[in-house]
Write a protein that binds this DNA or RNA. Structure first.
Lengths: 140, 140
DNA sequence: AGAAATTTGTCCGTATGTATC
DNA sequence: AGATACATACGGACAAATTTC
């Protein structure tokens, strides 16, 4: 993928997402964030970009990093007693049907499907991932 | 050597060589691959590059890695594809985490997950497929 | 049971080359 | 030209799990 940076640069966007997870208690406090390589997978960003994002969070005192161990969320400011069970994160995207899905929907392998993904976390840990697939209807 | 990436990157080349050794049975199945440090010596590549190569093999389900132990070849798979048969409306099975799921759950690629699949039909037609993934908890 | 060595996991800093806005 | 971003690659260091002595 090229590098369109309309508006905010990616490292700021990523930092913002992580910041929100921390401030909402999805991650911390005290627990480890995903590793750099995991985050590169999740955000599909390069390591450099992830590290820039982390640098912002460190700078804001939201996280601390220990060499060889990882990056923690810091118990922040006033504890607003975050609820233990978090709101799911939701994502919607168009994916290509694999063999199994294609067979079920009776469509061609590679045909488009809409995938809704919800991530349910408890204490910041991913508890469950739910994906729903539907036929893709061309719009417009 | 600097880092020109003409043609194939080194980690792919290395992964290819290792893949061949595994598929030829020079290594597997079940036995440990050489350690990362051994491979850096053999291929004169940095550890990071070796680890990238290993990640490819893991992603293909050819090997699995355990912290502090090593990486071993996986007993080669014969997947009897059930494709033809009509699926039950609800299904539960254990699946291997792909890269995306592994990143979200913060587990190893290839680690076990429980997948619940439900098929929603309207007038006999598949309307929607819902899959839920959870961590697999070893019982013994 | 305990210490040391091995091995993987993670982070740090840096560097080069390419491509896009 | 400069900032952003990607992919690749190196070498070093500390942390944590496992194995060996």
């Amino acid at each position: 993928m090229p590098t369109p940076h309309y508006g905010q640069p990616r490292y700021r966007v990523i930092a913002g997402i992580l910041r929100e997870r921390i401030e909402r208690g999805l991650i911390g406090p005290g627990s480890l964030l995903p590793s750099e390589s995991t985050l590169t997978a999740e955000f599909r960003a390069s390591r450099g970009t992830i590290r820039q994002a982390m640098a912002l969070l460190r700078n804001d005192g939201l996280v601390a990093t220990e060499h060889g161990r990882g990056t923690y969320a810091i118990p922040h400011g006033r504890d607003c007693k975050p609820s233990q069970i978090s709101y799911p994160e939701v994502r919607k995207q168009i994916v290509a049907a694999d063999a199994t899905l294609a067979a079920l929907f009776n469509i061609e392998v590679g045909a488009r499907l809409i995938e809704h993904e919800s991530i349910i976390r408890i204490d910041g840990r991913v508890e469950s991932i739910i994906r729903e697939y539907r036929a893709y209807i061309e719009q417009r």
